[in-house]
Design a protein around this nucleic acid. Sequence first.
DNA 1: CTTTCTTTGTGAAATGAATCACAATGTGAA
DNA 2: TTCACATTGTGATTCATTTCACAAAGAAAG
Lengths: 241, 241
Amino acid sequence: MKPKQPTDLMAPPERPAPVAGAAGRAPGVLSEKHVARLSVYRRLLQDRPAGAPPEIYSHDLAALSRSTAAQVRRDLMTIGFTGSPARGYRIDQLIEAIGRTLDAPAGQGAALCGVGNLGRALLDYFTIWRPQLRIVAAFDTDTAKTGRVIHRCRVYPLAELEAVVRAQGISVGVITVPAASAQRVAEMMLAAGVRGFLNFAPTPLHLPDGAYVEEMDITTSMETVAYFARHLPGAAATEKP
Amino acid sequence: MKPKQPTDLMAPPERPAPVAGAAGRAPGVLSEKHVARLSVYRRLLQDRPAGAPPEIYSHDLAALSRSTAAQVRRDLMTIGFTGSPARGYRIDQLIEAIGRTLDAPAGQGAALCGVGNLGRALLDYFTIWRPQLRIVAAFDTDTAKTGRVIHRCRVYPLAELEAVVRAQGISVGVITVPAASAQRVAEMMLAAGVRGFLNFAPTPLHLPDGAYVEEMDITTSMETVAYFARHLPGAAATEKP
DNA sequence: CTTTCTTTGTGAAATGAATCACAATGTGAA
DNA sequence: TTCACATTGTGATTCATTTCACAAAGAAAG
Ligand SMILES: NC(=O)c1ccc[n+]([C@@H]2O[C@H](COP(=O)([O-])OP(=O)(O)OC[C@H]3O[C@@H](n4cnc5c(N)ncnc54)[C@H](O)[C@@H]3O)[C@@H](O)[C@H]2O)c1
Ligand SMILES: NC(=O)c1ccc[n+]([C@@H]2O[C@H](COP(=O)([O-])OP(=O)(O)OC[C@H]3O[C@@H](n4cnc5c(N)ncnc54)[C@H](O)[C@@H]3O)[C@@H](O)[C@H]2O)c1
């Protein structure tokens, strides 16, 4: 009946507890929500049609991104970007300012582990990607897949992970291996110097502080959507009457 | 200089504003966060090894799911599930209780639109899926893909969407078409009766209240991970010195 | 030049979510 | 049977995020 963790001899009762991907942010570092919204703003602004005006108001950017005008202004405030009351925000400058915050000046490399159905789709998707953040190496245990180049990305055997990650200074890892291997592969990447993880396997990763993990849990997202499809205001619930 | 939205003649200044997928929840309906965590709890409990004990403590479930014991207890409280102070929570009963909350008693059908790289990977992934929530139809404009059966799922031409969705009472839509088509395809699905959307296209969908949308923005997730890989406490930032 | 707009930037307030902390519970050991 | 103790359930509290609301700015019209 003893608990696994015997009430931590001399620490306060309940665990310090990780909230999001990693431990509490350092000062001056944005929150996950801010970063995510800035990423969306930038993409929407970059995707604008050619003839569009060179400025934009907070409420127009809000409408594009399903946000609110106040939220947009707050977000831009956090990166110290200012506009003019009469003309709004300069789009080209805003894109650049977001880039200064989000992008690594010298670029950043990512590695993908598990070149299966999903891994190949992602490799394809990210080839058409800006040089600031690219998948520069892939790894798999299947010898039918290693040694080849898929979607311009070389696929290495897993044994070479440490060497390749170190040599290329890769800091981001994308995990698309079966659930049973995800934890082990993540630890290998961490040991090789990877600091940020995007995990598609349906198992939460357990990594120490000093690693940031984002769970892309498609199963949970699907279940969430299904739940709200039934519980929306005015939904007669898809249940037998 | 006139704004697109002329300060809403008689509504309060700034828009009511959608926060998450849809409008404010009805009373008695869980929050997105609660639903997402419950989904994770259930999957972790179902995936337990055979010999594991039939009960679990909040702090053990918390450790599995990267949550906290207090959080777990709160979540179970919201669905009215109770355990015993001495033995914890009965796992079989808990799985069932979560199912009563998350699953539609009569099952729920989903449709996938866009059978490309990502769409095929998802079809494959969701074939091995419990009957409570299944992808029962796929749609594409490419005649090379329609008429066939991929991963046990029939692929229909887009023109048949309305008829098939209505006939099968499909309530969930998965969007994996190119960004330029996403909004149009979503509107078709909505018109046919789909209420919940999982959008993989890198453009936010604009649907009226009465639809729930979850954006699976892989690009943004990737940029977020890259950002925190550089800004973790103790990260020397991947920038040239 | 002055008036009339609309918008920005931002303290202050409101809302929402996570955490704390502890009384109540009940089990197993003595 | 009684004691000791780890865990549950939950009100209260803290923390984070969003929204409100308004002073300040500046362009256009008269
Ligand atoms: N396919 C999807 O749409 C989808 C959706 C959500 C989640 N996922 C998850 O993503 C992961 C991959 O899915 P998939 O459909 O691509 O599976 P898959 O079986 O097609 O691909 C897995 C790949 O990983 C490789 N692999 C296995 N063990 C490995 C190891 N230890 N190191 C390196 N490579 C290894 C295999 O050789 C294979 O190429 C799974 O965890 C799955 O649950 C997939
Ligand atoms: N591949 C990935 O890993 C990935 C990652 C993130 C986001 N996405 C997004 O998901 C979407 C699909 O990506 P993909 O790589 O599978 O692209 P893809 O080009 O391989 O597939 C697109 C499919 O949609 C079909 N299609 C096109 N227009 C259609 C329409 N109006 N109605 C129905 N079907 C239509 C095409 O025939 C094709 O089969 C894109 O929006 C992409 O940006 C993909």
